[in-house]
Amino acid sequence: MTLLRQRMLHDMQIRNLAVNTQKTYLLQVASFARHFRRSPEVLGPEEIRAWIIHLTNERKLAPASVQLAVGSLRFLYRITLRRDWSDEDFPLPKRPVKLPVILSFEEVTRFFESIPSLKQRAILMTAYAAGLRVSEVVHLKVTDIDSQRMMIRVCQGKGRKDRYVMLSPRLLEVLRLYWHDAHPREWLFPGSIPGRPISRHAVGDACQLARERSGITKPVTPHSLRHAFATHLLETGADVRRIQLLMGHRSMATTARYLKLATSTVCATTSPFDLLPHPAPTPSQPPAPEYF
């Protein structure tokens, strides 16, 4: 490990960046250095610009992936190397705004009915009932289920933050049925490796199998259930601030995006056109017959 790599790693550890973020940033910077076959210390804004063009035109990376590469370089040069460079030295591609496909209440019901395994059903129902990320679901422990206060404790979620979410009485029934069948000890959903929780890939595979069995044509992932959770809460009248806390969003703007997805609420709004007075037809101009 070079001194620069070690110093960058220490800077990320001091700032308590997630372990996966540390690994990703180091990989991105290493790829940048290998491309130019020089240490990043001797490279500058022109090489950064050329790297972004290479990632976009040659490697055909999506804007989100390019933003990740730029973010790692921004940390290296601004934090570790303390270069006083402006935002213009780290140009970011604009990410297209795409709305996720949302499952209806009926589709969520059909999806759950298509899961044959009690364990898989409990996992995916927990993801929907509490609006959890898949990484949060798989790392739940038995002690995180507080049936006395009807809460679920989410330990070290995204951003390394703890939070509490509601424990649905109906979900509690499912979890109790699952617990009497599987008797998990530490991890609520243990994996095939002793002492380890179930993997995210295993949950994703279970989700894909259930989608195929249900006949739902929409794309369904564990994160789709989280999207459905927030959207269904909005459509049933929940407050946006409360949803922000339940979802663990740092910014209200992130939660506000779900306002675009709550179509049953948004599209049910009365158009101002319907509030205009209806002009009475004049005697010389009788109403036209309706054909449609």
Results as ranks from 00 to 15, higher is better:
residue 3 L to V: 12
residue 7 R to I: 00
residue 8 M to H: 07
residue 12 M to R: 11
residue 14 I to Y: 09
residue 17 L to I: 07
residue 20 N to Q: 14
residue 21 T to W: 07
residue 21 T to A: 07
residue 23 K to N: 08
residue 33 A to H: 07
residue 33 A to K: 02
residue 34 R to L: 08
residue 37 R to H: 13
residue 38 R to L: 07
residue 39 S to G: 09
residue 41 E to H: 10
residue 41 E to N: 11
residue 44 G to F: 00
residue 45 P to I: 04
residue 45 P to N: 05
residue 47 E to H: 06
residue 47 E to A: 05
residue 52 I to Y: 00
residue 58 E to R: 12
residue 61 L to P: 11
residue 62 A to E: 15
residue 62 A to Y: 09
residue 65 S to C: 02
residue 66 V to L: 08
residue 66 V to G: 04
residue 69 A to H: 15
residue 70 V to C: 03
residue 71 G to K: 09
residue 75 F to E: 05
residue 77 Y to I: 00
residue 81 L to N: 06
residue 83 R to Y: 03
residue 85 W to N: 08
residue 86 S to M: 02
residue 87 D to T: 10
residue 89 D to P: 00
residue 90 F to C: 02
residue 92 L to G: 10
residue 97 V to Y: 00
residue 98 K to M: 06
residue 99 L to G: 07
residue 100 P to Y: 01
residue 104 S to F: 10
residue 110 R to I: 02
residue 110 R to P: 04
residue 110 R to E: 13
residue 113 E to C: 00
residue 115 I to E: 05
residue 119 K to N: 09
residue 121 R to M: 10
residue 124 L to F: 03
residue 124 L to W: 03
residue 134 V to A: 01
residue 135 S to Y: 09
residue 135 S to P: 04
residue 137 V to E: 04
residue 140 L to T: 09
residue 141 K to A: 05
residue 145 I to T: 03
residue 148 Q to P: 00
residue 149 R to L: 13
residue 149 R to G: 03
residue 151 M to D: 04
residue 154 V to A: 05
residue 156 Q to W: 01
residue 160 R to L: 13
residue 163 R to C: 09
residue 166 M to T: 12
residue 166 M to G: 15
residue 167 L to T: 10
residue 168 S to H: 11
residue 169 P to S: 09
residue 170 R to G: 03
residue 171 L to C: 12
residue 174 V to M: 15
residue 175 L to Y: 13
residue 175 L to W: 12
residue 175 L to A: 05
residue 176 R to T: 01
residue 178 Y to P: 06
residue 178 Y to I: 08
residue 179 W to I: 11
residue 185 R to M: 08
residue 190 P to E: 12
residue 190 P to L: 06
residue 190 P to M: 07
residue 191 G to S: 06
residue 191 G to L: 01
residue 191 G to C: 08
residue 191 G to D: 14
residue 194 P to N: 11
residue 200 R to W: 01
residue 201 H to M: 14
residue 203 V to K: 10
residue 208 Q to C: 01
residue 211 R to N: 12
residue 212 E to K: 13
residue 219 P to Y: 02
residue 220 V to D: 08
residue 221 T to I: 05
residue 224 S to T: 15
residue 225 L to I: 07
residue 225 L to W: 09
residue 229 F to I: 10
residue 229 F to G: 11
residue 231 T to N: 07
residue 234 L to F: 00
residue 234 L to A: 11
residue 236 T to D: 13
residue 236 T to V: 01
residue 237 G to P: 05
residue 237 G to W: 06
residue 238 A to F: 03
residue 242 R to G: 14
residue 243 I to A: 06
residue 243 I to S: 08
residue 244 Q to C: 09
residue 248 G to R: 07
residue 253 A to K: 08
residue 256 A to G: 04
residue 258 Y to H: 06
residue 260 K to H: 15
residue 261 L to R: 04
residue 264 S to V: 12
residue 264 S to Y: 05
residue 267 C to N: 13
residue 268 A to H: 08
residue 272 P to I: 04
residue 274 D to F: 03
residue 278 H to V: 13
residue 278 H to Y: 02
residue 278 H to N: 10
residue 280 A to E: 15
residue 281 P to T: 13
residue 283 P to E: 02
residue 286 P to M: 01
residue 289 P to A: 11
residue 290 E to R: 13
residue 292 F to A: 10
